[in-house]
Design a protein around this nucleic acid. Structure first.
Length: 498
RNA sequence: GCCCCCAUCGUCUAGAGGCCUAGGACGCCACCCUUUCAAGGUGGAGAUCAGGGGUUCGAAUCCCCUUGGGGGUACCA
């Protein structure tokens, strides 16, 4: 048995979709587990909708996820690598033409001169008669003379594949035996458009055959079309690959995941600060399981365990909350310098967007890691968490400045007293261990709850009620800015009370 | 409409005839820790395994039917 050859065949007609990413991942995992070959082929025959920008988004997104292929184009518009190239369908048109010529010659396919209007009328008639839509076969039995006559009419024909009457059966690697009667396939289907460009069902088979694909691992949405592909493999005289149909990723309402109802573009997840380790881990566990209770696993750990037997048959709802939890798990596992490197672009984006007044340095972020690490569900949350450190003029809302159990007068008194204590202690050394005891003493002496006093200070210096631990925050802010923000808050309260 | 596929806690899932009075995780609720928020710890609620028939000494696991859901049905991929 030769090592498996599997592929992902994205169409550059949209940004990298979460479903495509998962299918790519499953194929890559299968190849890595079995020592097989994983290749990428671009299905760009829908010229009207395909763009280089989408191509770049897809290839870069897969690279970002850490999914690598052994054959195929590495970059958008770049060179193809591998012995079965080219790996772009628009560069393989001669092969489809040759394959069609062969089918035509053996009368396994034929030219169809029907116009869109005729086809439309057929479909409407069938609908009215409550019959399933099906090509009526008007051009199936044309004689050579008739074809020649129609051809001179100027309308270039499409090419249809003759669907034989039989029951096609195959053993799906995840679903078991599937049998479909070809009478339900909708009649002879078009494999080449009138303009000469080949269609998906045809190109996918010609290429999978030419590239010696052994296992076709793809979404369940292709299950019903599989008999067409099998018929084509047979007509081409090529052995059929093993098919494995993955369960679909679903919207919360259990329909096929769509951009209308869910966030489907990988680039959006990247932009929000999800990290590749979490996305890969989460996606692998959507529709597949180890068979055990392990769940936080790296790509390599998953590849070592991967198999088609544990692929789920039913669709899986995409649960963003679980993804966020897993993202937090992986963020906590990252090495310090790695986390800083990944955080910086988000801080820079906050700066550009005007949410903070400057981008901090790597060193500045590095020392803050202990106080933010377990508070980051996503990298994108960093600005909300500690952005106040890089804001020049902080304006604290008087309404939130006053702790729940306190009134404005108490808050004012508390902040004035706290300012004095901080100014005193801080003169020696501005450290968390030095700041906490005297402030606790202050609270006790005045009969305040320490938590209330701390909350007032917290809001005064950060503008928010949820922050990293207070004393670490004061130290990160520094003595000067802490005092200045306390002064500003005191002024705000005095202003509000007048 | 027709064809195909699917069906275990709200969600992701373990489970391949007795180990299941159905296990884990997310989320939710309590409590602990605690200056807030997290993280972490402990405990809890939550699934008559869609329903009904079989097969079997025994079924979440096998078979059939029903119901429900999804997908496909293009000169899109």
């Amino acid at each position: 048995m030769n090592p498996p050859r599997v592929r992902i065949a994205p169409s550059p007609t949209g940004p990298l979709h979460i479903g495509t990413a998962r299918t790519a991942l499953f194929n890559a995992l299968y190849a890595r587990h079995t020592g097989g070959t994983f290749l990428l082929r671009l299905e760009d025959t829908d010229v009207a909708r395909s763009t280089v920008a989408f191509e770049a988004d897809i290839l870069e997104g897969l690279h970002w996820l850490g999914i690598t292929w052994d054959e195929g184009p590495d970059a958008a518009g770049g060179e193809d690598n591998g012995p079965y190239g080219p790996y772009r369908q628009m560069q393989r048109l001669d092969r489809y033409a040759a394959a069609v010529a062969g089918l035509l010659e053996r009368d396994l396919a034929y030219p169809c001169f029907c116009s869109a209007e005729e086809l439309d009328a057929d479909r409407k008639a069938q609908e009215a008669a409550h019959l399933p839509p099906k090509y009526v076969g008007r051009c199936a039995t044309l004689t050579a003379d008739e074809r020649a006559a129609r051809a001179t009419g100027g309308r270039p024909p499409a090419i249809r594949f003759r669907v034989p009457a039989e029951v096609v059966a195959f053993d799906d690697a995840v679903r078991g035996r599937v049998e479909i009667d070809t009478s339900n396939l909708g009649g002879d289907f078009v494999i080449v458009r009138g303009d000469g460009t080949p269609l998906y069902h045809f190109t996918v088979v010609v290429d999978d055959a030419a590239m010696e694909i052994s296992h076709v691992i793809r979404g369940e949405d292709h299950l019903s079309n599989t008999p067409k592909h099998i018929l084509l493999f047979r007509a081409l005289g090529h052995p059929e690959p093993v098919f494995a149909h993955l369960p679909l990723i679903l919207n919360p309402d259990r329909t096929k995941m769509s951009k209308r109802k869910s966030q489907t573009a990988i680039s959006d997840y990247i932009a929000q600060g999800f990290i590749r380790e979490a996305l890969v881990n989460y996606l692998a566990l959507l529709g597949w399981s180890t068979g055990s209770e392990e769940e936080i696993l790296s790509f390599d750990e998953i590849a070592a365990r991967f198999d088609l037997d544990h692929v789920q048959k039913g669709g899986a709802v995409f649960d963003r909350e679980r993804l966020e939890w897993m993202n937090g798990q992986w963020i906590r596992r990252l090495a310090d310098d790695d986390l800083v490197t990944r955080l910086l672009p988000f801080l820079e984006a906050d700066h550009i967007a005007g949410r903070i007044d400057r981008t901090p340095t790597a060193d500045e972020v590095q020392v803050l890691l202990p106080m933010i690490r377990e508070r980051l569900p996503t990298l994108g949350a960093v600005g909300d968490l500690i952005g106040f450190l890089w804001i020049d003029r902080l304006v604290a809302d008087p309404a939130v400045l006053v702790p729940k159990r306190w009134d404005p007068a108490t808050t004012l008194a508390g902040l004035i007293a706290a300012r004095a204590v901080i100014a005193d202690t801080g003169a020696v050394s501005f450290e968390a261990d030095e700041l906490e005891p005297p402030l606790r003493e202050l609270a006790e002496a005045r009969g305040w709850k320490a938590g209330d006093l701390f909350m007032a200070i917290r809001v005064a210096v950060t503008g928010r009620t949820a922050t990293p631990p207070l004393f670490d925050t004061l130290v990160a802010l520094g003595r000067e800015r802490t005092l200045a923000r306390l002064d500003a808050a005191i002024a705000t309260l005095e202003g509000a009370s007048r």
